[in-house]
């Protein structure tokens, strides 16, 4: 075991893993995340904690991850390269390990121009691949970046990275994924998948490269809540492909049933993803629909979750 995290155990044992995601509060009030965490308790193998997503100032992922640990829920701490240099990152990783955080996800981070601090200075001292490599070095060699002296203590961290399977040229995305795995990624959570056919095609390339054998790939999913949201994802969010057919399907049901239809689409997608070679789990980003995660896991036969020692 590299980290001994629950997520690592579940994936290593060959179970189809489930993770979900909780956004941090825009302030110090943690009542909302506590409520959301209760919805998903026992329903997923780990819960991602975002790191100021869309470049909005939010409570730090390390704090929220720690709160989840105190609640007995396993977090996946997301860490972006946007806001910290290599000093701050390594410092936070030390702290995260000491606080019991065992999973982390290395991502670039949305550009600062999206958020509420548009004129802030970006950092990107190192990129997400270099971050993966840095954590791996801390974990496996107990050495910091560019320093050969051993660090004090262990960094048992299950290292995740993101992937974006749909943006052409897709073969480039696969080569890029290989680079992340070469750097040391143990698991991958992909961008939200609506185009199952496209994803299947990409996974074919990934499997032909043998990448699924070296890393656990989890397909990302976002339940569609409204037609407007689907249209927003279709046109505004990079890397997401939603067919007009899917949007018409949502339009075809009465307004108050759209969310349910979105749930059904999500459950169908989980079924599809389970059948694709090389897919080891799903990552459900239930934005604003955390309370329906229990229902999803039941309908998709993902409940109960395995309990491993």
């Amino acid at each position: 075991m590299k980290s001994g995290s629950n997520l690592e155990k579940v994936l290593s044992a060959g179970h189809f893993a489930v993770t979900t995601e909780i956004g941090s509060p825009r302030g110090s009030d943690i009542s909302a995340i506590k409520k959301k965490a209760e919805y998903v308790r026992g329903r997923t193998d780990a819960v991602n904690v975002t790191d100021c997503q869309t470049a909005m100032v939010r409570m730090s992922s390390i704090s929220v991850a720690t709160i989840l640990i105190q609640m007995g829920i396993e977090p996946v701490m997301q860490m972006t390269c946007r806001d910290r240099n290599r000093i701050a990152m390594q410092s936070d990783i030390f702290g995260a390990s000491a606080l019991g955080i065992r999973n982390m996800l290395s991502i670039s981070g949305d550009h600062q121009s999206f958020g509420d601090q548009k004129n802030s200075k970006k950092v990107f001292d190192i990129d997400s691949i270099q971050l993966v490599g840095m954590v791996k070095r801390l974990r496996d060699e107990r050495k910091m970046l560019g320093d050969d002296k051993p660090i004090e203590g262990e960094i048992p961290m299950f290292i995740g990275a993101a992937a974006n399977p749909f943006v052409p040229p897709v073969e480039f995305r696969a080569l890029h994924l290989k680079k992340k795995i070469d750097a040391g990624a143990d698991f991958i959570q992909t961008q939200a998948i609506y185009d199952i056919k496209g994803f299947r095609k990409w996974m074919r390339i990934v499997c032909d490269m043998g990448l699924d054998k070296r890393c656990r790939i989890m397909g990302g999913l976002i339940p569609l809540k409204t037609v407007k949201m689907a249209q927003f994802l279709q046109t505004k969010v990079p890397g997401i492909t939603i067919s007009d057919r899917l949007i018409n399907r949502l339009k075809g049901v009465p307004g108050d049933k759209v969310e349910d239809e979105g749930m059904t689409i999500l459950c169908e997608s989980i079924e599809e993803l389970r059948s694709i070679e090389g897919v080891s789990g799903v990552h459900i980003m239930a934005i604003g629909l955390e309370h329906r995660v229990p229902e999803i896991t039941e309908r998709a036969n993902l409940y109960p979750r395995p309990v491993l020692n």
């Binding site: 990129d127 997400s128 890397g239």
Partner: peptide, 14 residues
């Protein structure tokens, strides 16, 4: 836009 050295971020549009 992010001065990345090892390839694109997840923000490339279709």
């Amino acid at each position: 836009s992010k001065s990345l050295l090892n390839g694109p971020c997840g923000g490339t549009c279709l």
